[in-house]
Amino acid sequence: MTDNVYSHHAAAALWRIPLLGAWPMKVDVVGQRESGGRSSEQIRRRAGAHDMEVCTIDDLRVTSPAQTAADLARILPRIEAVAAIDSACWRGRSGPRASVEHVRAIIDRNAEDRGGQRATDAVTFATDLAESVWETASRVVIEELGFPRPVLQQSFRWSASSTYRVDFWWPEQGIIGEFDGLVKYAPAAGVDPRDTLIREKVREDRLRSMASGFVRWTASDVRDAERFVRLLSAAGLPRTPPRHAYANAIRA
């Protein structure tokens, strides 16, 4: 009986973990380091640690959510690695999820393995508060461009019955940031699109009145470093020399 299990991108697909970047054409399978077998046009075989965590989904053997995130963090570019961990750990996940601490423990157990430093860097920056891969991408690029690290999912109370949560908040500058994925404007059954737009306009107006600055951006802004810098700077965010090289090749 083979000890191979679905892993990496294949495991992420089975666990319904959203990822940033292109999905490969081959299915990832991982086995113990001693296992034989070769990759093919459809299968990419990878070596696995002897203590890798394995679960079962519909009779399929698959790496656990935490193991999947740790494995992906070893092979993906930094921005995509952080997104993989964030997605696996997000508090709002409807299915099984990992914790940042669990992913870090798996990475630390095999820190000397290939990609260990890359994974360690990614999990150090990871969080369970990012609601989408593009919120993660925004957060990583914000840091890489030299802007201060924001508070995530900050709540603002307008009245006894109205509280609004924002994606990003810079308390020292009093600035609110929102990634606009446009999903909030998508038509919903039984809901007049005009009502949706009005509610969002009221929400933004109220938030603007409680902050010194307010800035929105989209995925295309995150992809364009110069445009993103202009948006954040115009909102009043200070910028210092970047601590990381800008990940200017977001592949999705």
Score class of each variant (00 low, 15 high):
6 Y>N: 04
14 L>H: 06
14 L>P: 09
15 W>A: 12
15 W>H: 15
17 I>V: 14
26 K>Q: 15
28 D>G: 02
30 V>H: 01
36 G>P: 09
38 R>E: 13
40 S>R: 09
42 Q>L: 13
42 Q>C: 06
44 R>Q: 12
45 R>I: 04
46 R>W: 14
49 A>S: 14
52 M>V: 04
53 E>V: 11
54 V>K: 09
56 T>W: 11
72 L>N: 08
73 A>M: 07
81 A>P: 10
84 A>R: 03
86 D>P: 03
86 D>L: 02
88 A>W: 09
92 G>F: 03
100 V>W: 07
102 H>E: 15
108 D>R: 13
112 E>A: 15
116 G>D: 12
117 Q>H: 15
117 Q>T: 13
120 T>H: 13
126 A>G: 07
127 T>W: 00
132 S>H: 06
136 T>L: 01
137 A>C: 03
138 S>V: 05
150 P>Y: 00
153 Q>K: 06
155 S>D: 14
157 R>V: 10
158 W>H: 14
159 S>Y: 03
160 A>F: 02
161 S>A: 09
164 Y>L: 08
165 R>Q: 11
168 F>M: 06
170 W>L: 05
174 G>E: 04
174 G>W: 00
194 R>A: 12
195 D>A: 13
196 T>Y: 00
196 T>P: 02
196 T>W: 01
200 E>K: 12
213 G>K: 10
214 F>K: 06
215 V>H: 07
216 R>M: 12
216 R>Q: 13
217 W>T: 10
223 R>A: 14
224 D>P: 00
227 R>H: 09
230 R>C: 09
232 L>V: 05
237 L>E: 11
239 R>L: 08
240 T>S: 13
242 P>C: 05
242 P>D: 07
245 A>F: 01
